[in-house]
């Protein structure tokens, strides 16, 4: 069967089945199990209304349970057993093996570098652009253009930036912007930038900053718009300059939004895989955890160490997860 036909069939089946499920289960609930008539009508209506939420929730939560919650525990289990020893429990042996690998420490170190630089740079750039375009007549066009990389895949962005970093042998015309500028201004010989250890990490980070700044800008720009006009007017009347207004009046009012943006980008950074995979594949000391894990799982076929690396990512995400849950619960009250 051709994949396209299969796709059409799956769409029809999926939509049909889910509509059918919700419709039929409601019908059975109202007419067969707890009919709203006879001597028990009142009790039946209450019973039906107590069951109905669970009918509505079941398919989505079953799918999430299977595809997101169960894997967390299964990965934990896999990280504690050894596939080559008939799945015997080996305790922390996989973790110990991982810690003996210099590549793991390199990945962890680079990940922290990413965590330090990317959320900060994206949020600050986003805030700067949001503030600059706030009162601009063509601000919306400018924002749309800076927001655009959000639609581009990490792989597409990697190709775009690889052309910027491209290097040709000395003596030939440079076709990468970076080397063209570098050779023009310094008259040094061109560098193969992606192979320069340590600094190449920053070149990869620029790709993610380029993408995430638009995200930060959109959210922060909405937050800036949401600041009550009176507070700013009062500051203007009191003679505060634009910088003072920004830092003393606006910033404190959008702190919580800045934190949300910061943590959201932090999560993205922890999961960053495609950029490193497509641009250097972890060579030249650019390894990060997600790519290290992928390498272990699918190239070395070592599920134990791969799962251990995945658990490290989970551990790093955990504080943000808890913070999100706590603040969501605070809001519900």
């Amino acid at each position: 069967m051709s994949p396209i036909l299969q796709a059409v069939l799956v769409i029809t089946l999926g939509v049909g089945l889910s509509v059918g499920y919700f419709w039929l289960s409601n019908l059975i609930l109202d007419n067969v199990l707890f009919p709203a008539k006879g001597i028990n009508a009142g009790r039946n209506i209450n019973l039906a209304n107590a069951v109905r939420p669970w009918l509505f929730l079941f398919p989505a939560f079953a799918a999430m349970g299977l595809y997101l919650a169960y894997p967390v525990f299964e990965t934990l289990r896999l990280s504690l057993i050894d596939r080559d020893k008939a799945d015997a429990f080996v305790g922390l042996a996989n973790y110990r093996q991982m810690m003996d690998e210099p590549k793991f420490w390199e990945a962890l170190k680079n990940n922290f570098l990413w965590l330090l630089v990317v959320p900060a740079a994206s949020t600050l750039m986003g805030l700067l652009i949001a503030q600059l375009t706030d009162r601009l007549r063509w601000g919306n066009i400018a924002k749309a253009l800076i927001f655009m990389p959000m639609a581009i895949s990490f792989v597409g962005a990697s190709v775009i930036w690889k052309l910027v970093y491209d290097a040709r042998p000395e003596g030939t015309e440079q076709i990468g912007v970076l080397n063209a500028l570098y050779t023009f201004f310094t008259s040094n010989s061109p560098e193969v930038w992606l192979t320069v250890p340590f600094w190449n990490n920053f070149l990869l980070m620029i790709v993610l900053i380029w993408i995430q700044t638009g995200f930060a800008m959109v959210i922060l720009s909405a937050a800036l718009r949401g600041i009550p006009e009176e507070t700013i007017e009062a500051a203007v009347v009191d003679g505060a300059g634009p910088l003072r207004i920004f830092f003393r009046i606006k910033m404190p009012q959008i702190t919580s939004t800045i934190i949300v943006v910061w943590t959201t980008i932090t999560i993205t950074v922890l999961k960053v895989f495609d950029i490193v995979f497509a641009m250097t594949n972890g060579q030249w000391q650019t390894q990060v955890l997600a790519n290290y894990m992928f390498d272990k799982l699918f190239r070395a076929n070592d599920w134990g160490v791969g799962s251990a690396a995945a658990m490290v990512i989970m551990l790093l995400v955990l504080p943000i997860l808890i913070w999100n849950v706590v603040s969501a619960r605070r809001e519900l009250r």
Partner: peptide, 12 residues
């Protein structure tokens, strides 16, 4: 679940 990295889901 919003922030659980899907990396964990691959092998299971």
């Amino acid at each position: 679940l919003l922030v659980v990295p899907l990396q964990l889901a691959l092998i299971p």
